[in-house]
């Protein structure tokens, strides 16, 4: 049984837990790749071939002319590094992006507050598109596989990622989820991020576009309150517009705020319930899916190993 969430059905339904400190899928392969013992040598380990970058820097910051360190010797040393803290995630994201691009698959990272309407919109979107193109879904939530079940009820494959205490999906988790989804040229992978307007903005997943959903039941100043998210997004969906008559929400003002932190953000107003604006959203997806399909590498090698094996 899982010690974090107590569940018993690990992997039974594509339900995967990914948690950096060691939840079901503990990926020891990337943590010092199993040579952490004393006396262990890094010689010659350039880590090529498996899609992981192995950051050691020993080529650049040698320990001395001979590159040798001796037990008991004073070795207080300053090592200048200059590396992005998220470079590991960014490298995983680049691997995901390369893989998706080569397969001609469009990946969209959907983000909103909890209750922003991501899953309902996704269900309606899938119902409208599933006859036209191949769809796969990655669902991110702290707990439960409720959302993946809602998606599977639409007869499309979905992988649930439970982040446990984590507040966002990262590229490594998504890479594993992609292993379990069919990636057909011209298809779309929707990645429904954990409901949160803060953390997911910082983590590139390898998606083609980030889509933020702001529902009209929220404050129109959310773009100013959570600027990172709106600054990172390519498209803002103003959702639940069927409720506009009942709330004090000024769409123009919300758009103005969003443009203040992101002058180039695109906007579509829609309601999954009434269907208003859905055509524009579907067209937006289809245009990008067609473009992605054209970019597919015609012969992806059959031995194409998952980037995160």
């Amino acid at each position: 049984m899982c010690s974090v969430c107590g569940c018993n059905d690990v992997g039974a339904d594509g339900h995967a837990h990914v948690e950096p400190t060691g939840h079901h899928r503990v990926h020891t392969h990337r943590h010092h790749h199993a040579h952490t013992e004393a006396g262990d040598t890094e010689a010659g380990d350039t880590g090529s071939g498996d899609g992981h970058r192995h950051v050691h820097g020993h080529d650049h910051y040698g320990t001395g002319p001979a590159g040798l360190t001796v037990p008991g010797f004073t070795q207080a040393r300053l090592i200048e590094i200059e590396q992005d803290i998220l470079s590991r995630n960014d490298a995983d994201a680049a691997a995901n992006r390369r893989r998706l691009t080569e397969r001609g698959v469009l990946a969209l990272n959907l983000m909103s507050s909890p209750g922003g309407g991501k899953t309902t919109l996704l269900v309606e979107t899938i119902e409208a598109l599933k006859g036209t193109l191949a769809i796969g879904v990655v669902e991110g939530d702290q707990e439960t596989s409720n959302d993946a079940e809602r998606i599977r009820a639409c007869a499309v494959p979905a992988v649930q990622i439970n982040t446990g205490r984590g507040c966002h999906l990262d590229a490594h988790m998504v890479g594993h989820a992609l292993d379990d989804l069919p990636l057909a040229p011209g298809g779309v992978v929707f990645i429904e991020n954990v409901g949160n307007l803060v953390c997911p903005a910082a983590f590139d997943l390898g998606e083609a576009c980030k889509v933020v959903i702001l529902s009209v039941t929220e404050g129109e100043d959310k773009p100013l309150k959570y600027p990172d998210m709106f600054a990172a997004a390519d498209l803002m969906l103003l959702g639940k517009t069927d409720l506009l008559p009942h709330v004090d929400f000024d769409p123009e003002r919300a758009l103005g705020y969003a443009r203040r932190v992101n002058p180039t953000i695109a906007e579509i107003r829609l309601s999954a319930r009434s269907g208003e604006g859905m055509a524009a959203w579907l067209d937006w997806i289809l245009a990008r899916a067609r473009k992605a399909a054209k970019g597919a590498v015609s012969s992806v090698p059959s031995h194409d190993a998952p980037a995160h094996a």
């Binding site: 262990d40 001796v70 037990p71 200059e82 803290i85």
Partner: peptide, 30 residues
């Protein structure tokens, strides 16, 4: 004038580390 061209302010970077002098195991990194 509003601008979106950020020069600095978004960094999240490991700049440097100082290693301790407790003497690790003999290692030949090259």
């Amino acid at each position: 004038r509003a601008t979106h061209e950020i020069v600095t302010g978004r960094e999240m970077q490991l700049a440097a580390i100082v290693l301790g002098n407790d003497g690790g195991a003999a290692t030949h990194p090259g």
